Simulated assay, not measured.
Amino acid sequence: MKEKLILNENGSGSFSYGFDLGGIFKLGFKSSDSTKKNKVIDTVFTFKEVFAKAKDSIAKLPELEREKIKMLENFKVSAKANEAKQQLRFDMEYNFSSIDSLKKVVSPLEVLESMPKIGPGKQLGSLSVPEKENKKTRFSYNYDGKVFEKVILLPEDAKVNKKKKEKEKNPDNDFSKKMDDILKECKYSIEYQFPKKIKTVSLKNAIISKDRKSFILEIPMKDFPDDEEKLGFKVVFEN
């Protein structure tokens, strides 16, 4: 899973999420219906196009779901799935004119949850995550030329006590063991590129490029923090 942002001098840029899930085939993943011929997906679409065709279905969803889906409208999506080639990839990109356009951007997990409900996304149901596991996280970005900041906003009901979450885990459950195997193979990557040289990044273990205009951080999913707010950060630029 990769999150990438490119910021230009005038405040415009691009924001993207990439999900490369081809590795799950190595863990024995197969389509739910073995009697059907492997369906190959190779498509590019925008959520705006999907919404226009699915407006009746969207109108029947709860208000919070409609609000979440609306936030996806400006994203362009590329989806590829081919079980024979062990390929399962999903990329979405949003080109923005100003940093204000990124207020309350949806999280990657929320994107996965929404996809099976509408349009071509129904074919990508295997990418979805259970509703109860989704924190419904929002991202907010601030940039004034001197400092860039990413703030992660969690609703109150998402701030679950860590001990309670540990108690709910069942190490003897076959599904839990399978998920642990998958997480060992996965990583979350964050890459941000700026028009100015970076002085400091608040993220621990972030690697700043040689030209000091970008940084990258890779986190094994098994080490993904329980408190997602820890992935918020501040970048201070050189004068």
Rank of each mutant, 00 (worst) to 15 (best):
F175P: 02
S176F: 09
L183Y: 05
I190Y: 11
K177V: 09
K165W: 04
E185Q: 14
K177Q: 14
Y188T: 13
N170C: 01
C186D: 11
D172W: 02
K167I: 04
E168D: 07
D180E: 14
N161F: 00
Q193S: 14
P195F: 03
N161Y: 00
K169L: 09
K184Q: 15
K165C: 05
P171C: 02
E166A: 03
Y188F: 15
D174P: 12
I190A: 15
T200G: 07
K184M: 08
D180G: 14
P195G: 08
D157K: 05
V160H: 00
T200K: 07
K197Q: 14
K177Y: 05
N173V: 04
I190E: 15
F175C: 00
F175Y: 08
K199S: 10
D174T: 11
D172P: 01
T200D: 14
K177N: 10
K169P: 01
K169Q: 04
S176Y: 11
E185M: 13
C186T: 10
V160W: 01
I198Q: 09
F175V: 12
C186L: 12
K196G: 08
K163L: 06
K197H: 12
K164N: 06
Y188C: 08
K177R: 11
K178P: 03
F194H: 14
V160G: 00
E191Y: 15
K196I: 03
K163Y: 02
L183E: 15
K165S: 09
D172G: 04
I198M: 05
K162T: 07
C186A: 09
D174I: 15
K163C: 00
K177S: 06
E185Y: 03
K196H: 12
E156C: 03
I182L: 10
K178D: 05
K169V: 07
I190G: 07
S176H: 12
K178F: 12
M179K: 12
E166F: 07
D180V: 04
S189Y: 13
Q193F: 15
K167S: 07
P171V: 05
K169I: 07
P195R: 09
F175Q: 08
N173Y: 04
M179I: 13
F175R: 06
Y192V: 12
A158F: 00
